[in-house]
Amino acid sequence: MASTLPVHLRRLEAEAIGIMREVAAEFRNPVMLYSIGKDSSVMLHLARKAFYPAPLPFPLLHIDTLWKFREMIAFRDETARRLGLRLIVHTNEEGVRRGINPITSGSALHTAVMKTEALKQALDRHGFDAALGGARRDEEKSRAKERVFSLRSASHGWVPRNQRPELWRLYNTRLRPGETMRVFPLSNWTEHDVWEYIAAEQIPIVPLYFAALRPVVERSGTWIMVDDDRLPLAPGETPQMRRVRFRTLGCYPLTGAIESNAATPAEIVAELRETRRSERQGRLIDNDEEAAMERKKREGYF
């Protein structure tokens, strides 16, 4: 085989490709969730491999909360243009009218309205019956319990107690009216696998993942980047230039950076070997309560 990937990455790659083809073959109207993050970039790369030489048999969907980093949006549009992708961008306009934002509404309400609700709206509006997502089981404890093919009720809820047994690589894709499927082809990947794969396959990602001097302020023990003038500064608080990078990307006021010198995927892989903090440490939305992620997922969050 032409590939020089390590054995375990080749296995993960083949598994993800198999899962995506199963979605294309079994569902009427699938979609791929595209969050612009590193996992989405890997997923997009895998999808191109899965269907080559055919184009992707589904569109991409980005849920835009209007609070993403500006570099993310530029990267998204450039990627869609470069690869000739069908990209759907959806924003919860009702949430915008209500003035929901991460700063005054709080992270929990902002996430519920601008991400969870928005996602449900978009899935309903386009009648998608399956949505591919880049979530991984190593990210979080309740994700570790989720199936690769995860059934959602007509109201998009997840019932963790009543998941279908998922044996071998046989996926039950049957739906009853109104039900939909969330599908996670990267379920068995770790953060480390993702970076190794990005390095080996030279997959383009948002430059925010690489260390650079950026204007930041310290909030709740983490560095928040001042990406535009919507971030209110406390009296006496002045942005300082720090060499930082992001381990995950989301809404900029809710996403903490870490100090780092890692400027290439290989340097990130090396940095991960030394780190003592998990990937989601910078995510302010997960720490609201111990079972925050499971609650959000029950309500329809990815």
């Binding site: 390590p6 375990h8 480390h192 892989v269 070997r273 003592r276």
Partner: peptide, 9 residues
């Protein structure tokens, strides 16, 4: 540190 390693494991 967490022992993630590459190679042909």
């Amino acid at each position: 540190a967490p022992a993630h390693c590459s190679g042909s494991r």
